[in-house]
């Protein structure tokens, strides 16, 4: 029964990535390699981030929101953006269209994040006898994260790869990218400063991820129309 629960949480956490891959044209163009490269870049980024966090951040005993520390954390969080930049521009991709490239990168990115951050707690926790909602919520969080990663990749590809974007949309693109990039800090602020509980935070993440995904989708298709 607990294995059952583990299975449920696992498909909630990792299922959407597989569904995304198989449902969209990504599977038709065989972009698994791109996703994997992105995942490896994520791994490298995670290590760099860890080193930065370990070097520059004090370990706070109490779970308080310290603006200085948090802004430092947000700054280190920008390493992620650099990682996505690297994955989008510097890696040699097979000839796939920009349209599919960013999706593959975002997908690989989110999947690596899920594996690294969620698999171990899931394995340890959800198989135990004790029932908590945490692992279901964590699965939902993985979904939100997928949407964020793909939006970020989409915005990144708009910023760095597309030459002829409509001038009016450029500020909007940068604002959206900034919001998505600082999302971890925002949720941390909500949790620590405003004392939101985990379900509320997850709800917020799901809602905002939907909004951001929709906006970036519209932005991307607007630019697409313009260039075509």
């Amino acid at each position: 029964m607990t294995a059952f629960h583990f299975f449920n949480c696992a498909i909630l956490t990792f299922g959407p990535h597989a569904v995304y891959y198989s449902a969209t044209p990504l599977s038709e163009y065989d972009t698994l390699g791109t996703s994997m490269k992105a995942a490896l870049v994520y791994l490298g980024t995670a290590i760099v981030k860890l080193v930065c966090l370990a070097n520059f951040l004090k370990v706070s005993e109490n779970d308080e929101f310290d603006p200085y520390q948090e802004s430092l954390k947000a700054l280190i969080g920008l390493v992620d953006v650099a990682g996505i930049y690297f994955a989008l521009t510097q890696l040699t991709h097979r000839n796939i269209s920009q349209n599919h490239k960013f999706q593959a990168v975002g997908l690989g990115w989110a999947f690596a994040d899920s594996i690294l951050h969620r698999l171990a707690p899931l394995w340890v926790g959800a198989r135990g006898l004790e029932f908590t909602w945490d692992y279901i919520l964590q699965g939902l969080e993985a979904n939100a994260n997928l949407a964020f990663s793909i939006s970020m990749a989409a915005l990144g590809s708009l910023m760095w790869l597309r030459r002829n974007k409509p001038k009016t949309l450029i500020p909007l693109i940068y604002i959206c990218a900034l919001i998505v990039a600082t999302m971890p800090s925002i949720t941390s602020y909500l949790r620590k400063k405003l004392d939101w509980h985990f379900p509320e935070v997850v709800g917020f993440e799901l809602g905002s991820s939907l909004v951001m995904a929709f906006i970036s989708w519209q932005l991307f298709s607007a630019c697409q129309r313009r260039s075509s």
Binding site: M1, F4, H5, N8, E130, F131, I136
Partner: peptide, 15 residues
């Protein structure tokens, strides 16, 4: 050890 456990029905519904 006291565990709060979910019933099988709940897991089925979740699935």
């Amino acid at each position: 050890n006291i565990y709060q456990v979910a019933s099988v029905t709940f897991d089925l519904l979740l699935l």
